[in-house]
Amino acid sequence: MSKMEAYVETGMLVVGFLLIVAGCYCLIRTYHLLKIIIGVEVAMKAVTMFVILAGFINGKIALAQAFVITVIVIEVVVAVVAVGLAINLYRIYGNMDIRNLRKLKG
């Protein structure tokens, strides 16, 4: 591998970590249920990129593609479940505020 390509890979790792930080920060700080799911999705984008990057580095890009397609299918179904929960909570409380979720404590 040339030096140039190693820089590209380092750049991808840095951007990926920053996106995960952004997603997790959103997940912790926001009060809106859908915004939490958006934060999670942003972090998932970075993770998908890591898998492809791994395949690119070790020359197993075909295997990495197979992984990523599976990950994408799972990601969508998880998003559907999360949105379903959020909508049901909206039907109960009339808004999507995470501060409603305080029934369980102790």
């Binding site: 070790n58 999360a82 369980l104």
Partner: peptide, 28 residues
């Protein structure tokens, strides 16, 4: 619904961690 949402958020965090770990092992 509240318990399920809390579980989902933590569990998705866990998936992100596990999948990133898998990507690193796969890289190696």
């Amino acid at each position: 619904l509240e318990g399920a949402f809390k579980y989902l958020v933590m569990s998705v965090l866990a998936s992100i961690m596990i999948l990133t770990g898998l990507a690193f092992i796969f890289m190696q």
